Structures are given as structure tokens and as C-alpha cells.
Amino acid sequence: MSKTIDRRGALKKVTLMMGGVAATPALLSVLQSCQQAREKLDWVPEFFDENQARLIMEISEHIIPKTDTPGAKEAGVHIFIDAFIKHCVPTKFQNIIPDGLVGLENKSQSQFQKGFLDISKEEQVSVLSDVAKADYSQAEDKANPTFFRSLKELTLMGYFNSQKGATEALALVQIPGDYEPCIPLEDGQKAWAL
């Protein structure tokens, strides 16, 4: 191998380096615009602040992710949870989820030195698993709701009562219709929405 560089090789290397230097600001602006797009909400929360609303969107999507059926985000579960807590939860229980979100953020910061929304999906699952384990270990007393259990129950309730959840994840028979008390299910068939 020769250690000398001919003029053509040197020009190629300089061009490649200059292209990388020139492309860096453009690449950074694209990445920042992706970050900013994720941070914008398409609705105005009634109860939560914007960061809490984003956290709830992300966590609910981990609970019911998009597969061949819509995920929790697409079904608008985060909007349901926000309205439900504002209008239906007694005042003494309204801080369970906001306080739990603070704990979740603290756990993410201590484990990964980043906020929950800034870590990878795998890291988010790790943080959520730890929070859920701790939550369910103290959830023996059903009279005292806990953060993750409450959020999971609200996610499931919101999803399966949404139009997308009831029509695309479950089989739905519109009412009024014929009453059939016993309908056999076949292997692989979806459960019926009520």
C-alpha cells in the first residue's frame, strides 16, 4: 500500500469533509424540527399541563401500542384521561397521576440523566416496568389508588370506549339490533364490544 495521496484522492477527501461540515447545520435543523414536532399538542389539555399531557400520551401508547389496530394515541385516550380526571375524579384523588408523573420523570433522570420523553423507547419501557413493579407491590389496598394502576385502568377504559377501540380493536354490533344471549366465538375472533 502506498502512503502517498494523489491529487484526485485528496480532492475527494476534502470534498467529503466539506460536505459533512456543510450538511451538519441542515441535519441539525431537521433533527430539531422532528423534536419540536413531537412537542406540539394537537389539543388543549383541561387538567394537565402540556408536559404532563405529552407524558400521558407516550405512556398510554406503551400500554396500548399501535399494531394492526390503532394505538392509544390514535384513539385519543390522552384526551379522555385529561377530561375524566378534570370532571369525574374527586378532588382528593386528582393529584395521583400528576404526582406519579413527577416520580416517573425523577426515575428517568436518575437512571438515564434525561427526561422520560428524551430517552429511547426501550429505556422508556425499562422505566415504566420499574414504576409498575413498585406500584403493583403497594397496590394491595384497592381503596387507595396508585399512579400506574390508575393510569392503566383509565387507558383501557378510554381505549375500549373510544370509537376506534370499539370498532377496530373489538367486534361491534350496533344497537338497536337483535338480542342474541349466546354467540359462539371462533378461534382468533375478537371479543365483542358492549
Rank of each mutant, 00 (worst) to 15 (best):
S2R: 09
K3A: 10
T4I: 05
R7I: 11
G9Y: 02
G9A: 15
A10E: 08
L11C: 00
K13Y: 07
V14M: 12
V14L: 15
L16V: 05
M18W: 06
G19M: 11
G20A: 10
G20E: 04
A23S: 07
P25Q: 05
P25C: 04
A26S: 06
L27G: 06
V30E: 05
V30A: 09
Q32W: 14
C34N: 12
Q35D: 11
A37R: 14
A37E: 13
R38P: 00
W43C: 02
V44K: 12
F47N: 00
F48E: 01
F48D: 02
E50F: 01
N51Y: 11
Q52K: 09
I59D: 01
E61R: 09
E61D: 15
H62G: 07
I63V: 15
I63F: 14
I64G: 09
K66N: 09
D68I: 10
D68V: 13
P70S: 06
E74P: 00
G76D: 07
F84D: 03
F93Q: 12
Q94V: 01
I97K: 00
G100P: 03
G103F: 10
L104N: 04
E105I: 01
S110M: 14
Q111N: 12
Q111L: 15
F112M: 04
Q113Y: 14
K114F: 05
G115F: 04
G115H: 12
L117A: 11
K121R: 15
E122Q: 14
Q124H: 04
S126L: 13
D135V: 05
Q138G: 15
E140H: 11
E140M: 10
E140T: 10
K142P: 08
K142L: 11
P145M: 01
T146H: 14
R149Y: 10
L151N: 01
L151K: 03
E153N: 14
T155Y: 02
L156D: 08
M157Y: 12
G158E: 00
Y159C: 03
F160M: 01
Q163E: 14
A166P: 07
A171C: 05
A171F: 08
I175W: 06
I175L: 10
G177Q: 05
E180W: 00
L185T: 01
L185K: 08
D187T: 07
G188K: 05
Q189M: 15
L194W: 08
